[in-house]
Amino acid sequence: MLENKMDQLNISVQQIFGEQEVEIVNFTCEDLDYKTPNFTTAGIFHLQGIALINHEQLPWSIILKIIKSDSAEKEDPAHHNYWRREALVFESKILDELPGSIQAPKCYLVEEQVDGTVWLWMERIEGQFPHTKEQFDIIAERLGRFNGAYLSGKNTPNDQWICRSWLRSWTTSSIMYAPNPEEYIHHLYRDNDQSLWAWFQGFMKRIDNNLNALHRLPRVLAHQDLSQMNMLLTQNGELVLIDWQFMSLSGLGEDLGKMFGVNMSLGVIPIDRYEEFKESLFHSYIKGLKASGWQGDESLARYGYCLSTALRSVWEVPQYFSLSTQLCADSDYLKLQDRVARLEQIINIQREMAEECSTLKAYR
């Protein structure tokens, strides 16, 4: 794979050490075999080896990410998953000007390929993925500082490839590709399922109004993909966010809603601690917003947080009905039982947060 790539490798290693002359003594390339890549990710590799710098042998380490076009819709810069966005993020140097509460990996080289893919040669970050509530609270507070900086005087970037309606685009795609719940609801007879179906029908009728309300919130620069494996806490206390493919200008609180929602979905947040995390993360986020200098109405952030979490139901409710129907035919399948039980609890949280939004009438 790396045939004829020694020039690019040398350029990257030179930037690591800030040296004009390096000699790569040896290196290995490991396919990280990331299990849930973005559809526009063709591969992620870890390159590491030894370089000779001023007669001294020193170790180096690089991440190589290959991105590709996936479909016609992802050729549109307005799409939430526009395939070239991360390359443009790195070329723009926006990440060099982030608020101090968060960091991003350095990009040594953005390389266009004749096959149409783009290779991103990037810094490898040494850090720990969050797993405790305390670590998630730290990240939520830093996220509040990050988002809040753009409400307290920091200029918001205006590049046209930054998504302006990330959640509207994601919601539209999710509705398009999710199972059709009407195919499954008639096979389910539990009272809770019928109640959920009635709520979901009403929620779907209000989708446009909800998205319009979200768009009226104060706008901030957002990451929009804060799953566990995109957040690294380093030994010196820095928070480094990787994978900026979904960069957007979003409503206040949206980033936090994505962080909470996706880590429930991935099973990172324990099922018996959803309520605890929900409130603790928001409290930490508000703390960060205030530390950034923002003195606005907290209910604006609450609305964005609750609604962005609730909107994930457009994907997860259809999944729940589909899997519940399978469970009826194979009720002894323990793994499926666990997944359905977790989805049911997640949807209960989404429903609760949607109903809270309806009480914040000023922002509907």
Rank of each mutant, 00 (worst) to 15 (best):
D31N: 14
D96N: 14
E21F: 06
C306F: 02
L360P: 06
Q160W: 11
L266A: 15
R145P: 00
Y108K: 06
T156V: 15
L109V: 09
S308F: 02
G148Q: 00
N54D: 14
P130I: 13
P99R: 10
M231L: 15
H80V: 04
F90E: 00
R273V: 01
C107H: 04
C107W: 02
I16C: 07
L239I: 02
G267S: 14
T234P: 03
P59F: 05
W199Y: 11
A51R: 02
D255Q: 08
L252E: 00
Y34G: 01
I16Y: 00
Q103V: 00
S152D: 05
E23W: 08
Q350I: 04
Q128R: 10
A198V: 10
L360T: 03
Q20G: 09
T41L: 13
R351Q: 15
T40W: 00
F282Q: 01
P77R: 12
C357A: 09
K278T: 15
H46A: 08
P218H: 03
R351T: 14
R85A: 13
I44Q: 01
L217A: 00
E111Y: 12
F129K: 02
N236W: 01
G293A: 09
G202C: 01
S308P: 08
L311N: 12
Y177W: 15
G49W: 01
E75P: 04
N26Y: 04
G116V: 09
I94F: 15
F136A: 07
K290R: 14
N147T: 08
S299P: 03
R124S: 11
Q103E: 09
I175C: 05
M122G: 07
V13M: 01
M1C: 04
E183D: 14
Q8K: 15
E316M: 15
T171K: 06
W83P: 10
L233F: 12
T132Y: 01
C107N: 14
E19H: 11
S324M: 03
E112Y: 08
N236K: 10
H131W: 00
L167N: 05
K154A: 02
E298F: 05
C163E: 11
Q128T: 10
E238I: 03
Q228P: 07
W294R: 06
Q103L: 09
S313G: 08
W60R: 04
Q350A: 07
L233R: 05
Q345Y: 12
N38P: 14
Q245D: 10
A213N: 11
V13F: 04
G251I: 00
E111I: 12
F129Y: 05
S248Q: 04
E316S: 15
L233M: 09
M353A: 09
T28A: 15
I16N: 03
R124G: 03
E75R: 13
M204E: 13
T41K: 11
M259R: 06
N230E: 05
C357P: 02
E279K: 11
L289Q: 03
N192S: 14
E75G: 07
R364T: 08
I16L: 09
